[in-house]
Design a protein around this nucleic acid. Structure first.
Length: 666
RNA sequence: GCCGGCUUAGCUCAGCUGGUAGAGCAACCGCCUUGUAAGCGGUAGGCCGUCGGUUCGAGUCCGACAGCCGGCACCA
């Protein structure tokens, strides 16, 4: 193109420009301030390098630090690029692979030389230093279009096997670009900033190293990944680091220990020892869920823990899920000092990893009519899964857990409505528990699966329709579809909550399954007098008590809402003269169903206030001589500078009793 | 399972280049009867994760294993 063309700016004005003009030129023409601030350009909606010449009529918007989302992504991508250059400068022979921006920074995956081995955290400061040198050099980042063969030949000559492999797999019609900064070149789609000097050398920090499989596949080589966090300026970085420190204080493992809620130990790895206070939270939550399920038309059952392998063969778990199961020999162990404990000749049994096959057994007892459907069978079912050691994480990812599980047996034409109703039930429960925001994903058919494509098509569409009917297939709920992520027997809706440091955890789920009723021969008699297969909806709202309580702890930072707090009030005396009255107050609270403790220790009130505050006790009832004489209590809610109120004993008890009611009982 | 790191008193953590373990808090005892986020003094508490190796001598160096932590993969 040799003729001038028109560029329309966001304010509606149009500029005629000559071929070869770049967005940077236009920024400069508008003003020096903008020229300096402009990081990149949005050309017809696509983010591009600011130095990349415009090619014809287009809408142009300049991206500055004010466009925080785009700017952060650009900057993080550039930090990753600088990281890769720094590592190759310091450790020649290290191969480069991928380095994208993440939610709070960036990473880059390297294949270190065999002599060097994976990178360690000790090496990060020296790499950071090299990155700062590259930034200080203010190297121009130049976009170049290469042919596929040129790229491959180049990387092969450099000993860069991963990049050479990757370029050959890019789509045939893709423009292949290389970015050059000084001597250094990387295959990259871009866009990038104009030069490394646009980065703030004090606004990034390398945070950790880890392994990562090449292209995310266990079968491939393990690469060495370096993570960093990167921001537009040092203030943002500092704020982020402060946030991480705050988040670390919310860690459920730390709070669990401080509040004496549970512990884990080596001899039962992945299984939780619930202490009285932790189990109180569980019991309150379970009682609440039981009320909600009763009201929603569920029938509660209890099914066996250990079942014969033949049942698991029939259900398909033996074939597709066995590596996650704890298998037990049905055999009397040898008690002799010598010889093996078991011979392995007995039949195999397995601890249940899921409740569904057992629920089908209950469904199959007697004859079910279409009039019985939908039949909603609930169980607080304790399951065991043999999770990989590396997957275990506090009480969020364990090997023994209890689900708030249920299976809804229904007719095919009832699926959408049941799923919709479920979405509403779940929404109300999450709100009651303090979670106004959560994300919904639809996990679609995996490669390894049972059932026909037609069944999968239908089941996936029904889940999609139900969420849309519930009005939640929207960006507010992070709605997206995840190909290949479904269970082997059914697609699933996943409901995710976030932990203290922003990691998301799946808690709730609902899955539309036609496979298991078929494999385990569940039938009902229809209006036509014929046998039909029910559809089975596998569903959970909390997911598991373990994970959900872990998230509750982090969400509330240990300061539970009153109805969930394991200790709702502590009666603390100032002088021993108040002991008799304090016992009376404690008894009155307990009689009113309030979980209260009595602190008569010979300690200063300052000491008691501090200790119970650190333990996140929601209410402190302080009793001195005055209160004892007046039959009053000084009610001190938890919190710095909390306003204390002096109330009559009966009033205080009545108030706490009202405030401690579960949300569904208010 | 894979990569890296860590493991010392109930908890949080010191312990340099190898020379028989130390603090704060908690616990226990005593004094103080105390008014809203740590009163004072004392006592006791340790197979330094486990096993093996190097060494005259190992918390410290080396190896294996286990658990935990951060990721990857897997997943509620």
């Amino acid at each position: 193109m040799t003729k001038p063309f028109n560029i329309r700016l966001p304010d509606g004005s149009v500029r005629e420009v000559a071929p070869g003009t770049t967005p940077a030129d236009i920024a400069a023409a508008i003003g020096p301030g903008l020229a300096k601030a402009a990081l990149a350009a949005r050309v017809d909606g696509e983010v591009r390098d600011i130095m990349r010449p415009l090619e014809g009529d287009a809408e142009l918007a300049l991206i500055t630090a004010r466009d925080e989302k785009e700017a952060l992504e650009l900057v993080r991508h550039d930090y990753a690029h600088v990281l890769a250059e720094a590592v190759q400068n310091l450790f020649p022979g290290t191969q480069i692979t991928f380095g994208p921006a993440t939610d709070d920074g960036f990473y880059y995956d390297f294949a270190p030389t065999a002599e060097h081995g994976p990178f360690t955290e000790e090496e990060l400061p020296q790499i950071e230093e090299e990155m700062r040198r590259i930034i200080a050099r203010d190297e121009k980042l130049v976009r170049e279009v290469w042919s596929r063969d040129e790229v491959r030949a180049f990387f092969e000559s450099q000993g860069e096997a991963f990049k050479a492999e990757w370029v050959m797999e890019l789509p045939a019609d893709e423009t292949i670009t290389m970015y050059r900064s000084g001597e250094w070149v990387d295959l990259c789609r871009g866009p990038h900033l104009a030069s490394t000097g646009k980065l703030d050398p004090q606004a990034f920090k390398l945070t950790r190293v880890s392994g990562a499989y090449w292209r995310g596949d266990q079968k491939n080589a393990m690469l060495s990944r370096i993570y960093g966090t990167g921001w537009l300026n040092r203030k943002q970085l500092q704020e982020h680091l402060t946030r991480l420190e705050e988040a670390a204080k919310r860690d459920h493992r730390k709070i669990g220990q401080e509040m004496d809620l549970f512990h884990l130990q080596q001899e039962a790895q992945g299984s939780v020892f619930w202490h009285p206070k932790g189990y109180l939270i569980w019991r309150v939550l379970e009682a609440y869920m039981r009320r909600k399920l009763d009201a929603a038309g569920y029938d509660e059952v209890k099914s066996p823990q250990l079942m014969d392998a033949r049942l698991w063969e029939a259900s398909g778990h033996w074939g597709k899920y066995r590596e996650n199961m704890f298998v037990v020999p049905d055999e009397v162990p040898n008690t002799e000092a010598e010889g093996p404990v078991i011979t392995g000749e007995g039949d195999w049994m397995a601890l249940k990893p899921m409740n569904c096959p057992a629920h089908v057994q209950i469904f199959r007892q007697g004859i079910k009519s279409y009039r019985d459907l939908p039949l909603r069978m609930a169980e607080f079912g304790c399951c065991h899964r043999n999770e990989p050691h590396g997957a275990l994480h506090g009480i969020m990812r364990v090997r023994q857990f209890t689900q708030d599980d249920a299976h809804i047996f229904c007719r095919a034409d009832q699926v959408v409505e049941e799923v919709r109703v479920f979405c509403d039930l779940l929404d109300g429960i999450y709100r009651d528990l303090g979670f106004a925001t959560y994300e919904i994903k639809l996990a679609l058919r995996p490669e390894q699966r049972f059932g026909s494509d037609a069944d999968w098509d239908r089941a996936e569409q029904e889940l999609r329709d139900a969420v849309a009917l519930a009005g939640r297939a929207t960006a507010d709920y992070g709605w997206e579809e995840l190909p290949g992520e479904g269970a082997f027997y059914a697609p699933k809706l996943e409901f995710h909550l976030k932990d203290a440091i922003g990691r998301t955890w799946q808690v709730g789920t609902i899955q539309a399954d036609t496979v298991l009723p078929d494999r385990l021969d569940a039938t009902y008699v229809g209006e036509d007098g014929q046998k039909h297969r029910p559809v089975m909806l596998h569903r959970a709202i909390l997911g598991t008590f373990e994970r959900f309580i872990g998230i509750l702890i982090e969400h509330h930072a240990g300061r539970f809402p009153l109805w969930l707090a394991p200790v709702q009030a502590v009666v603390a005396t100032i002088v021993s003269d108040a002991d008799v009255y304090a016992r009376e107050v404690h008894a009155a609270l307990t009689a009113a169903g309030i979980r209260a403790e009595l602190d008569l220790r010979n300690e200063k009130i300052n000491y008691k206030v501090r200790e119970h505050s650190l333990a996140h006790v929601p209410n402190l009832l302080v009793l001195g001589k005055r209160e004892a004489e007046e039959r009053a209590v000084a009610l001190r809610p938890l919190g710095e500078g909390a306003r204390q109120e002096v109330l009559g004993l009966e009033d205080a008890v009545a108030r706490l009793q009202a405030e401690a009611k579960a949300p569904d009982l208010r």
